[in-house]
Design a protein around this nucleic acid. Structure first.
Length: 525
DNA sequence: TTAGGGTTAG
């Protein structure tokens, strides 16, 4: 148990252990007159219920030190506590697992299911599957936890395959199962399988469950089938809760049905998720007036400590052109996360203030070591690169690409290279752009974005020879967006290559592509 | 012991 003790101490350095609670727990165990397992297990559960996983872990550790017998009722809450500690949970969880093996609880149904769930939520799906495989008995909750494990760890198809084999093997599933598998169908946009699940939900009566019906609304919205989402929503004849309303609201926003989203928002009690969705609608429609009204609602309902909602507020002001309001909203975010920083960096970048965006990125970097500091991610770097591009600060863009790889260990993706090629091309530095393009192509990582950025660079420099190579790559990628073909065709035409332009139009014809006429929008007054 | 809704990109 020494190893467990040292790991726990190490975890406290990173913050999850709060000293006052730790002292309270130690004190409590020393003074408790009847230190029996049942009372202490109840206390463990209470700590987890009170969202105080550090105290639960410390108490568990003390129980072990005082040789208080541990059983399933001790392991279930302590595993939940591990799950709630992202920094140290998996290390501590492994130590708890070792103790479960020693006490033979690892082969009991409920503790083993908790163990599977702990590994799953700590991102260790391989360990979760190993626990599942070794379980001597399983119930439907174990199966549901396994399905959930696959989905939350990015293996949605495996969840669907597992469900198929459950049906074949006549495993009696529940509404939990249907909701979970619907989530997999939504993430894979697996339309036909989702429809089959809808049928199963009707036949088995699961559709009377609020959660299952909500999952179905989410599935249809994700697949762009808003009419069916509305039908499930309105056909649900029991009282709807805020999650179900927000699911449809989010579906309206995802499918650009903004007026319906605003209307539904007006029919619900204001809550953070609904307002966040509505702010996205304001950002997309540049509706500053509604955005300001939502900001008032945020202040009125005292939601201004909600980071996700405040991030949406920053984004709304930035998209609506109000950079100063975006900055004020950003400054007031109490717990800024990586998205908060990315939003404000992007805001300055898209307004052409590249040096301010870079300053903010440096500020973000310098705050890294502080308790409130956060690390940049791939999207942050894309925003920084984009800001450099909008302001033509090429050398800083190059430094940024190196920094993300060398300091943060994030491998630039095609989207980062596309951004870099774009800025080189716009500056007329076609040779450098071509070097980067050729390297990406050599690594087999070309995508449409990289090709289009290079093609635009060729257009700036009127480099017909290279543009033909890029055009060939685009054809090989099977691009089906008309805009890309129009770009190519116009390029040929600008160079007097009418035959080339004609060929492109023919390709568009037999691929059935036509360009949607572009439009712009301005707000007056 | 398992399940449903929200924020960042080109």
């Amino acid at each position: 148990m020494q190893a467990f003790s040292s790991l726990f101490r190490r975890s406290s350095i990173h913050g999850p252990c709060k000293p006052p609670e730790c002292l309270a727990a130690q004190h409590l165990l020393g003074e408790m007159p009847h230190r029996n397992s049942t009372r202490l297990n109840a206390l463990l559960s209470a700590h987890v219920r009170d969202k105080d996983p550090s105290s639960a872990l410390l108490l568990f550790f003390q129980m072990h030190r005082h040789s208080i017998p541990l059983d399933g009722f001790s392991f279930n809450p302590v595993l939940a506590a591990c799950t709630a500690l992202p920094a140290a949970g998996s290390h501590l969880g492994r130590q708890v697992h070792a103790l479960m093996l020693k006490t033979a609880c690892a082969s009991e149904l409920i503790p083993a299911t908790s163990l599977l769930d702990m590994y799953s939520k700590c991102g260790l799906s391989g360990d979760a599957v190993a626990v599942f495989d070794e379980m001597p008995e399983r119930d439907i909750i174990t199966w549901n936890a396994l399905l959930s494990c696959f989905i939350s760890n990015g293996h949605a198809q495996r969840a669907i395959n597992t469900f198929s084999s459950m049906v074949k093997n006549r495993v009696q599933f529940t509404g939990f199962t249907v909701s979970t598998v619907l989530k997999a169908c939504a993430s894979l946009l697996s339309h036909s399988q989702g429809l089959q699940l809808h049928g199963l939900a009707v036949v088995t009566g699961c559709l009377h469950s609020l959660v299952t019906a909500t999952s179905l609304v989410d599935f249809y919205s994700s697949c762009g089938m808003v009419v069916q989402a509305i039908q499930v929503f309105t056909g649900f004849d029991c009282p709807k809760d805020s999650k179900m309303c927000n699911t449809l609201l989010s579906g309206f926003v995802q499918n650009q049905r903004y007026n319906e989203a605003f209307k539904l928002l007006g029919q619900t009690t204001p809550n953070t998720v609904g307002l966040t969705c509505a702010l996205t609608a304001c950002s997309e429609t540049l509706n500053l007036e509604y955005g300001k009204q939502i900001h008032c609602a945020v202040l009125r309902h005292d939601f201004n400590s909600e980071t996700i909602l405040c991030n949406a507020l920053v984004n709304m002001y930035a998209k609506c052109g109000e950079i100063h309001s975006a900055h004020s909203a950003f400054s007031l975010i109490e717990e800024k996360n990586v998205v908060s920083w990315t939003c404000i960096i992007d805001a300055y970048g898209r307004h052409g203030h590249g040096s301010e965006a870079l300053e903010l990125f440096k500020e973000m970097e310098s705050a890294e070591g502080s308790p409130t500091g956060v690390l940049p991610n791939a999207v942050t770097f894309l925003s920084v690169l984009s800001a450099c591009g909008h302001s033509g600060i090429i050398d800083e863009g190059r430094k940024c690409l190196n920094l993300m790889r060398d300091k943060y260990g994030i491998e630039p993706g095609p989207e980062h290279y596309a951004c870099f090629i774009d800025m080189l091309g716009k500056a007329g530095r076609i040779e450098e752009a071509w070097d980067v393009y050729s390297r990406v192509a050599g690594e087999g990582r070309l995508n449409v974005g990289v090709c289009v950025a290079m093609l635009n660079g060729c257009k700036v420099c009127m480099d017909l020879e290279r543009s033909e190579v890029v055009a060939q790559h685009l054809m090989e990628l099977g691009e089906d967006r008309a805009g890309v073909y129009i770009l190519l065709s116009n390029f040929y035409a600008a160079n007097g290559r009418w035959e080339g332009a004609e060929n492109i139009r023919k390709v568009m014809g037999y691929r059935g592509l036509s360009k949607v006429v572009g439009s712009s929008q301005i707000a007056i007054g």
